[in-house]
Design a protein around this nucleic acid. Structure first.
Length: 589
RNA sequence: GGACCGGUAGCUCAGCUGGAUAGAGCAUCCGCCUUCUAAGCGGACGGUCGUGAGUUCGAAUCUCACCCGGUUCACCA
């Protein structure tokens, strides 16, 4: 049966994609071919570029693969659109197409399925895991500020977003020829360490912390906040400790380093679960000795102003509130540290772009950061991009460690892995490496859930939603690929890359999705939007599921090799797509 | 109050630099495991695209105003 509609294709092969991709020579640019056909038929009455931009993808398969709406011609030709369409069809050389027909005010182009499938499948199979690679990045370095949990606090679902989006962007950047540098900008400095040291000195023990670092440290910290209400002298002690820390007192530094390293160890266990690594763990503390220079530059450039006892940079001309550089007491602030970090990264990496995957709450902060850098005369501030994302809430309220509204990432991952294991036990009890697969599927479900929707959408946390394995989920995509692999295992035939014509209409939508992958990757990286890849993977999986539900692959006839080539191509592209998201692709599940 | 983000099916969301009858998933109901793993496939049900104007041959998509929800706006990060 022919799939009824292919509307989902529209979003991936829409014209704006091509518009912005002139630089990037796409292989298999059928749209260009069509534009040329039209221009030729019109005796150059229109520019090829103008035609190219108007070509669109129809909503349903019965309207063809590409369409040219002829409204723009109606004005100049003073004829009814329907008539123009008919005339145009007569003029077009149709030899390269299955057919070209007029439908109302549109000219619809149907590509030749044999030629198309042959070209697409050969390309995917020969390029294999490199299918979709691009060179737009020119090896430019792109530091990505991501994850950035606070020392001595647990990693929550909130951190997952930054971690997983940043990781996927890094993968996408690598694929398109950039060199990403994943930086975990740890929250490892601040007055809270004074409190933590004081709390530890009062109630803590080395054994406790060693046994369960994050929870114990958090416990001390929370207790501190409880008790300091009745004992305000605790705050004085904490302040003293932080001062000692700043002054390099041995004991303070040692404790701080210890807290930092045990925290990092437990963070790394979670990152291991997620399969995510970093290139740098330089956190806030790293910039302690780099802020004086920032203040110095600001002073030299006469940008600092005194206001209400504090030092500010006026950002009126950017329509922003002033950036507070120094507090009344002379201490520096968040933005000062970020200025130092931005400058450090420029010097260290000479980046072509510098990304910050940080929640949307900080949009204003990053606008200020860029504006101040601009004022300082650094024109590379234009290369800094804040990649904001929406808030995760719990029962509609913001997550907050203090109020106990936390969703621990580690717990969510473990729950997901357990559920995946249960699924395997009931659906595929003979699976060999079941634990490994349960891990890949469980974690994959969580990551995919976070990436499948547009970054900026907020969502309310719901465990059942996050660890769902059916419908539009990571496991659905993984399952589809596992099924494809299964067919290949049973095939008893090695696919040869030659003559891959496939005329089966059931395969048509899948073939077109395969063809659209490279431009989809470029769009995702251009928009810093991993969800574009996630949605692509879902659509490709869906179309392939429909294909093999309706067409038998393992039949010995003259198109067997072509069908297996399709199956293998789907498997290849689904694996690439999942990996771009940071999700594993098991061959069996 | 200013700035920003969002408002599309009961729920979660696609579609948004304008184009042909507005699409998925979940939920509910009904089919399909003697044929390549049913984590699948098919079907039914379900929509004044927040509201009102405007631009246009054509608006969910662009403009303006308004309504609702969220975030943020000087000494936290």
């Amino acid at each position: 049966m022919v799939p009824r509609v292919n509307s989902s294709l529209t979003m991936f092969i829409c014209k704006r994609l091509f518009l912005n991709l002139q630089m990037e020579e796409l292989k298999m640019d059928y749209k260009k071919q069509i534009a040329q056909s039209i221009v030729k038929a019109l005796d150059d009455k229109l520019e090829e570029q103008a035609v190219y931009e108007k070509i669109e993808v129809p909503k349903t398969v019965n309207l063809g693969d590409y369409a040219f709406p002829i409204f723009i011609l109606a004005k100049t030709l003073h004829k009814a659109p329907q008539m123009i369409a008919k005339d145009l069809v007569d003029q077009i050389n149709q030899t390269n197409y299955e057919k070209v027909e007029a439908a109302g005010p549109y000219v619809n182009f149907f590509l030749d399925k044999n030629t198309f499938s042959d070209e697409v499948l050969q390309t995917v199979l020969t390029q294999n895991s490199h299918y979709g690679d691009a060179t737009v990045g020119n090896n430019g370095k792109v530091p990505i500020d991501m994850s950035s949990p606070n020392i001595a606090k647990p990693i929550s679902m909130g951190h997952l977003r930054s971690t997983v989006i940043g990781n996927s962007l890094a993968n996408l950047l690598t694929k398109t020829g950039y060199q990403p540098v994943k930086i975990n900008h740890l929250g490892d400095w601040g007055t809270q360490f004074g409190k933590l040291i004081e709390a530890y000195k009062l109630w803590g023990s080395e054994e406790e912390v060693k046994a369960d670092p994050i929870n114990k440290l958090l416990e001390y910290y929370v207790r501190f906040h409880k008790e300091d209400k009745d004992h305000p002298e605790l705050d004085d002690e904490a302040r003293k400790w932080f001062k000692k820390l700043e002054d390099g007192d041995d004991e303070a530094i040692q404790l701080w380093q210890w807290f930092r390293s045990v925290s990092l160890q437990s963070f790394k266990r979670i990152y291991d679960k997620l399969g995510i690594t970093f290139d740098s763990y330089k956190g806030e503390a790293f910039y302690n000795d780099k802020m004086d220079e920032v203040v110095q530059i600001l002073e030299d450039k006469k940008l600092l102003k005194e206001s209400q006892g504090a030092e500010i940079v006026d950002l009126d001309k950017y329509n922003l509130n002033p950036a507070l550089i120094k507090k009344t007491d002379g201490a520096t602030l968040y933005i000062t540290r970020d200025l130092a970090a931005a400058i450090y990264r420029k010097r260290t990496y000479d980046f072509v772009q510098s990304l910050y995957v940080v929640g949307a709450e900080q949009i204003n902060h990053f606008k200020q950061l860029k504006a101040v850098l601009k004022e300082m005369g650094f024109d590379w501030s234009d290369d800094i991009h804040h990649i904001p994302f929406g808030l995760i809430t719990l029962n509609g309220k913001k997550l907050s460690t203090r109020s106990g509204r936390v969703v621990l990432l580690d717990k969510v991952l473990d729950d997901a892995i357990d559920l995946a294991k249960q699924q395997i036990q009931s659906k595929n009890p003979d699976l060999k490496n079941a634990d490994q697969v349960a891990h890949e599927v469980g974690v994959g479900a969580v990551i995919f859930h976070d990436l499948k929707n547009e970054r900026m959408n907020s969502f309310d946390f719901d465990l059942n939603e996050v660890v769902r394995f059916e419908g539009e989920t990571g496991p659905y995509v993984q399952y589809t690929r596992a099924r494809a692999e299964s067919i290949l295992r049973k095939a008893d035939h090695k696919v040869t890359v030659a003559d891959l014509k496939l005329s089966d209409p059931n395969a048509w939508e899948t073939l077109k999705f395969l063809q659209a992958f490279p431009e989809t990757v470029l769009r995702a990286v251009r928009e810093y939007e991993p969800s574009i890849i996630a949605k692509y993977a879902l659509h490709l999986a869906k179309s392939f599921n429909q294909y093999y539900a309706n067409s038998k692959v393992l039949v010995k006839d003259d198109q067997l090799n072509s069908r297996l080539a399709l199956v293998q191509s789907v498997s290849i592209v689904l694996e690439i797509a999942l990996n771009l998201l940071g999700v594993q692709a098991p061959s069996e599940m």
